[in-house]
Simulated assay, not measured.
Amino acid sequence: MKRLESQKDVTWAWQLRKMTREEKVVLDYKKSGKKYDPKAIPWDTTTIILPKVWKK
């Protein structure tokens, strides 16, 4: 942050948003050290769009 703040000729913009449920699942796997296999997770296909190769 100090390095970014020291650059006075550059204007930085920040945008914050809530994490999606999918991002939370991925982060939980990363934090716990479990093997992450997106095809093995029962995703809610009514709220997200999965690649066609993952659909049954």
Rank of each mutant, 00 (worst) to 15 (best):
Y36D: 01
V10P: 04
T20M: 04
L27I: 09
V25C: 02
I41K: 11
P42A: 12
V10K: 12
K39E: 07
K24F: 00
W12M: 04
W54L: 05
L50P: 05
T45E: 12
I49S: 07
T47F: 05
K34A: 07
K52C: 11
K55V: 14
E5R: 10
E5S: 08
K31M: 04
K30T: 13
R3D: 15
Q15S: 10
R3F: 10
L16I: 08
T46P: 01
R21M: 02
T47C: 11
R17A: 13
D9V: 10
A40V: 03
K31T: 10
T46A: 08
D9P: 00
S6P: 00
E5M: 12
K56W: 08
L50Y: 09
V26N: 01
D9F: 07
W14R: 15
K2V: 13
P42Y: 09
M1L: 03
K39I: 01
S32V: 01
D37Q: 07
R3G: 12
M19A: 12
K8S: 14
K30E: 15
R3C: 14
E22I: 03
L4V: 02
R3L: 12
D37W: 03
A40M: 07
K34L: 06
T45I: 14
P51M: 02
L16E: 12
E23D: 11
T11S: 09
S6F: 05
W14D: 05
R17T: 13
S6K: 09
T11C: 07
V10W: 06
S6W: 05
R3K: 08
S32G: 03
R21N: 10
A13F: 09
T47I: 11
L50K: 11
P51T: 06
T45F: 14
S6D: 14
T47K: 15
G33Q: 06
T45V: 15
M19R: 03
K39W: 12
K56A: 12
L4D: 05
V53D: 14
D9N: 15
R3S: 15
Q15C: 06
K2Y: 08
Q15K: 13
K55W: 10
D9S: 15
K34N: 07
W54E: 01
S6L: 13
P42M: 07
K34W: 00
E23N: 02
L50T: 05
V53C: 04
R21S: 09
V25E: 01
K35E: 13
S6Y: 03
E22V: 09
D44R: 00
V25Q: 02
L27T: 10
T11E: 10
A40I: 02
K24C: 09
L4K: 13
K24I: 13
I49G: 04
T20R: 12
V10G: 03
K8I: 11
Y36R: 04
P38G: 04
K24Y: 00
V53G: 07
R21W: 06
L4R: 10
K56P: 13
L27K: 09
Q15L: 09
A40R: 05
L16S: 08
Q15F: 14
M19K: 07
W43N: 03
W54Y: 15
E22P: 00
W14P: 01
T45K: 15
G33F: 10
D44G: 03
L27N: 04
K56M: 05
D37T: 03
K8Y: 11
V10Q: 10
K35F: 05
S32D: 05
W54T: 06
P51F: 04
P38F: 12
A40W: 00
E5I: 06
T11N: 02
I49N: 11
D44P: 01
M1Q: 09
P51S: 06
K56E: 12
